[in-house]
Design a protein around this nucleic acid. Structure first.
Lengths: 200, 200
DNA sequence: CGAGTGATTGACTTAGATCAATGACCGTGG
DNA sequence: CCACGGTCATTGATCTAAGTCAATCACTCG
């Protein structure tokens, strides 16, 4: 998923960094699309605004996320991108990317593979969000993200981050983990979760 | 998103239909990937099973969905696909697709565009699921799916389906809609929702 | 004319959100 | 070197929105 894994070198070199203040607009609905953005630091949110001025958030990008990949294939943006915090973005210019894809089918394929993986991932997360029970959500998360041994999950960030990922409040997650631990369903070590026997 | 919009004709012709009984396995983790499946009718679920035998559902495909696009780029499946109901799938063989992408960059680009759109879409739905309040969820859904006039949403299926899409029970959705109607926030006509003035 | 499904509403329960407080830890600046 | 501000982790008390169970009506289809 990391951008380096699929962006061709030539395009990489042509990229440009830009710094945004909190609240600053990166692009706006109807504007000409410039290329693919990678969020380096900070947060940027994509919003769509309806005729009455109500806005709906499409996506809140975190560092490492890529913004507006669909805009590579359309001439105009379909939403607004606004920095939520001060942020740094990197722009990979559209002509460079598309030209590279024409020239090198390998590059195109790498890009497709990355997108396909993202689709799978997102679908999985969506499925996870359909689970009502916090405990089942954690369980499923563990099955899905287990390491090679099939029962250890290493946490990428803080528990708070995990809670957000799971669509729970951090309090709910703490409680759920505490409950599962006391019931002997999991064990915890710093930065890791171990699945033990589950009995339903 | 419809498969006809991006699948090259040559590949289309090479596709094969297959019928599954409820409970039948389409493919299994570790099996050789054959290509891209489109679900024609019925439901198929993708599941991952961990070492202890616990399973987590990755995705439940509905007619029109495409399965395992990521498997186009890997040699082995990473999950099991099992028919939930009796179902019909259409297989687009991997060699045909990949060869076509090599030959015709346009086709490759169409595929990328489709995937990119899917990614946007999925992210948006994920964002929607983060909204706790049923009312806000409906509101956001309406903003996101408003027609050209910016305030009419035509419902693709039944309200029950919509409820599932929104991650609500149908009862909760009915009540929410009833509430919003009585408060004058929306108007309803068969198969359509109209947004009126919202006051928060 | 039943059987099946969608739409709708009622009553009740509960899981998780919300608000709040505490302790541990960490960096940093005086 | 230590006090202070910040964030994470954790737990308690309370509340409420949405889930669950259940019943009814309208409609369609064979």
């Amino acid at each position: 998923m990391a951008i380096e894994s699929w962006i061709p070198h030539s395009v990489r070199k042509a990229s440009i960094e830009r710094t945004l203040q909190a609240g600053q607009t990166l692009f706006r609905t109807g504007g000409r699309t410039k290329g693919l953005y990678e969020l380096v630091s900070g947060n940027v949110r994509l919003v769509r605004v309806d005729s009455t001025g109500r806005e709906a958030v499409l996506f809140v990008a975190a560092p490492g996320d890529t913004l507006a990949e669909a805009s590579l294939f359309s001439a105009r943006y379909h939403c607004d991108a606004i920095a939520l915090t001060s942020a740094v973005v990197r722009l990979y210019p559209k002509p460079a990317i598309l030209a590279e894809f024409q020239r090198d089918p390998e590059a195109a394929q790498a890009f497709m593979a990355m997108l396909a993986r993202q689709v799978m991932n997102l679908r999985t997360r969506l499925q996870l969000m359909n689970i009502r029970s916090a405990r089942d959500r954690v369980r499923d998360y563990m099955v899905l993200n287990a390491g090679p041994d099939g029962q250890t999950v290493s946490l990428p960030g803080t528990l708070k981050d995990l809670a957000t990922d799971l669509g729970l409040t951090h309090e709910a997650l703490y409680r759920t983990l505490a409950g599962m631990t006391s019931r002997g369903e999991i064990e915890r070590s710093p930065g890791k979760l171990h699945a033990l026997a589950f009995r339903d």
